[in-house]
Design a protein around this nucleic acid. Structure first.
Lengths: 203, 203
DNA sequence: ACCTGAACACCGTTCAAGT
DNA sequence: ACCTGAACACCGTTCAAGT
């Protein structure tokens, strides 16, 4: 009788894991370290999550939802023009990704087996990008366009965080250049024939 | 006297580590596992590399050199037109990245502290992309253009390997679409005024 | 000069025992 | 229903000892 009451919560555990991840990378997220931060011992964590992968997946989902909020806020503060909304979104994503690079990596890379945000959370984070793309290139190409934009923004900020840009120069300007180039290409593609892009790729 | 002769080589160790990485991910690259593959015991590895990070960094350098060869070959087989060379390079990079996704991640992401290709190897792999970009957008914008193209190709294939594209559709077509959009945007940017891109980004 | 076994402090995970 | 200590098989790394 009088069963032991919970001394912590899933949210607290996820928060602790996220902090450790961002401060020291994946290997800093040990079950013992997480447990200590929330005032319990490592074995007790298995009452809240299946295993370390499950905990990291929960962190990924949490990060996806935070990103969605950050992007929604940024777009809400921007104008109504599609190109402007796209630019605001891209800039806001970079801020988010550079502020929490290791957490952001959980969203798109497979940092460990089984570690990925819940499909629903990923869909929610992706939805607004699809909307902007639809407005620019039409619904037939919206999915491809969203994938291209996401791949660029993720790839660029991931490389930037990793220190992969080692030749000097203005990295932020390169990012803005990339967004401008993509926007120009997409707008031009939108008025072309449906198969213009494929034709161009093989030219 | 008669000091023990080497039973293995740095190249063999790097190859074993690379195989384990590609087959089972980073956590499958254990010092004991690598040692067993080359017929020695784990402690002996420390006569060849400082530590696990050093070994992984050597793998990253090796991968960078392999990528350079693959890209050089692909471009040599393509035509002389800059846009065609760019396309051939992008397609060849995707083939390489999808064939060895976990090794490729070592090139641009920071999968673990201190794990990155040697600067010289990275520079060699990056040089030809810079050349193509110079031909398309001029030397003033070549570095930014190369960063944008690399970020897109890396980000896209990384997401593709991670299974991040979950909404169906033709993923390969999206990649070709992205290359076409970037090529179109870069060519257009090349004839614009120097600051056209930045202006566009803020429009 | 390279390899080895033994040892160290860690790690994720399981499980019986507590409340 | 949740928490714990003890135990398991691992892990990277160090080091004295071998050849």
């Amino acid at each position: 009788m009088s069963p032991a009451r919970a001394r912590t919560s899933q949210a607290a555990i996820i928060g602790a894991a996220r902090d450790l991840l961002e401060d020291g990378g994946l290997e800093a997220v040990s079950m013992a370290g997480v447990a200590e931060r929330v005032g319990i011992k490592a074995p007790s964590l298995y009452k809240h999550f299946d295993d370390r992968s499950g905990l990291l997946a929960a962190v990924a989902t949490e990060v996806a939802l935070q990103l969605e909020r950050a992007l929604t806020d940024a777009v809400a503060r921007s104008g109504a023009d599609p190109a402007t909304r796209l630019d605001a979104r891209a800039v806001a994503y970079r801020s988010f990704a550079l502020a929490t690079p290791r957490a952001s990596a959980l969203l798109f890379a497979s940092v460990a087996p089984g570690v990925a945000p819940a499909p629903e959370a990923q869909a929610r984070a992706a939805h607004p990008v699809l909307e902007v793309c639809k407005a620019i290139v039409g619904s037939a190409r919206a999915l491809s366009a969203a994938r291209v934009l996401t791949a660029f923004a993720y790839g660029f900020t991931s490389m930037e965080s990793a220190g992969a840009f080692r030749f000097g120069g203005d990295v932020e300007e390169a990012y803005r250049f990339g967004i401008a180039v993509l926007a120009a290409g997409l707008e031009r593609g939108a008025v072309d024939a449906p198969d213009a892009a494929a034709t161009h790729a093989r030219a």
